[in-house]
Computed example of a mutant assay.
Amino acid sequence: MDIGHIRKDFADHAPLTREAIADDPFDQFTRWFDEALASAMPEANAFVLATATAQGQSSQRTVLLKYYDPQGFVFYTNTESRKAKEIAANPQVSMLFPWYGLQRQVKIEGHIEPISREQTLRYFLSRPKDSQLGAWASRQSSVINSRQLLRQQWAKMKEKFRDGEVPLPDFWGGYRIEPHAIEFWQGQPSRLHDRFLYRRDQAQTDWLIERLAP
């Protein structure tokens, strides 16, 4: 099916200039993330995580950002899932925040590594109990016969842990993506988009900032 006719020009946003953006990419990310939250778009903290096998076969999925600071971006998942196995085989990943409502996107490339069990536990205990039970009920990425089986497993976990706190599963944990490149993309009319790339210098101490052609 030819869908080449589907086309929409971008709004006339204020130009993104070197003078207007922050010197530090995490400061710039905070500006845009706060604006994404204020826009009331659904799941502003959702991003697409791309991983690859040791042989280079890539895969993507949407996950939720739960914490970030100048050391990187943190999310949580089942550590026996496909994504976790690919991370173990190839710790170079990329992430993309597709903020369509603002005609913006942020692309991040970097190295990923597990965070401490202590930090994982603190977050796990902050989750609603039903979500804690869900972590126990689902062996993520494994083949199952039906949704009914999944619901039965969840009910089994609910009964098992009904009289106390739900413990942290040994197959569930957090990961931190430590970026070496962060690109901010702002849509503009006539496809003359604004793109700025922050990348680490060779000493991995300072951020270099470059404008990219759209």
Rank of each mutant, 00 (worst) to 15 (best):
56 G>L: 09
56 G>T: 08
57 Q>M: 11
58 S>I: 14
58 S>Q: 13
59 S>P: 01
59 S>V: 05
60 Q>M: 13
61 R>Q: 12
61 R>F: 06
63 V>M: 10
63 V>G: 05
64 L>H: 09
65 L>S: 06
65 L>C: 10
66 K>H: 15
68 Y>S: 06
68 Y>Q: 06
69 D>Q: 11
69 D>P: 04
69 D>I: 11
70 P>D: 15
72 G>D: 09
75 F>L: 13
75 F>W: 13
75 F>C: 10
77 T>S: 15
79 T>D: 05
79 T>H: 02
80 E>R: 13
80 E>I: 05
81 S>Q: 06
81 S>P: 01
84 A>I: 04
85 K>G: 02
86 E>L: 03
86 E>P: 00
88 A>F: 05
89 A>S: 14
90 N>Q: 14
90 N>W: 03
91 P>R: 09
95 M>T: 09
96 L>E: 02
96 L>M: 14
97 F>A: 05
97 F>S: 03
97 F>W: 06
99 W>C: 04
99 W>T: 04
102 L>C: 08
102 L>P: 02
103 Q>M: 12
104 R>G: 04
104 R>T: 06
105 Q>A: 14
105 Q>M: 12
105 Q>N: 13
105 Q>V: 07
106 V>E: 01
106 V>K: 00
107 K>D: 04
107 K>W: 06
109 E>I: 06
112 I>L: 10
112 I>R: 00
114 P>L: 11
114 P>S: 11
115 I>R: 05
116 S>I: 11
118 E>K: 14
118 E>R: 13
118 E>A: 15
118 E>F: 11
121 L>T: 10
121 L>Q: 13
122 R>P: 00
125 L>R: 15
126 S>D: 09
126 S>T: 11
127 R>S: 08
127 R>F: 09
131 S>Y: 08
131 S>N: 14
131 S>I: 10
131 S>L: 12
131 S>R: 08
132 Q>L: 07
133 L>R: 00
133 L>A: 04
134 G>Q: 05
135 A>Q: 05
135 A>H: 04
139 R>E: 04
139 R>C: 00
140 Q>F: 02
140 Q>H: 09
141 S>L: 04
142 S>C: 00
143 V>D: 00
144 I>C: 00
146 S>L: 00
149 L>A: 12
150 L>H: 00
150 L>I: 01
151 R>H: 11
152 Q>L: 10
152 Q>K: 11
152 Q>D: 15
153 Q>E: 15
153 Q>K: 14
156 K>T: 15
157 M>P: 00
157 M>E: 12
158 K>H: 13
160 K>N: 10
161 F>R: 03
161 F>T: 04
164 G>T: 09
164 G>V: 08
165 E>W: 02
167 P>F: 10
169 P>G: 07
170 D>N: 15
170 D>A: 14
171 F>C: 05
171 F>A: 04
171 F>G: 00
172 W>R: 02
173 G>Q: 03
175 Y>W: 14
176 R>Q: 14
178 E>H: 12
180 H>L: 03
181 A>V: 04
181 A>N: 02
182 I>N: 00
185 W>C: 03
185 W>N: 03
186 Q>G: 03
186 Q>K: 08
186 Q>R: 11
187 G>E: 03
187 G>W: 02
188 Q>L: 07
190 S>K: 13
192 L>E: 07
192 L>S: 09
192 L>N: 08
193 H>S: 07
195 R>P: 06
196 F>M: 06
196 F>E: 01
197 L>S: 09
198 Y>Q: 04
198 Y>K: 03
198 Y>W: 08
199 R>M: 11
199 R>E: 15
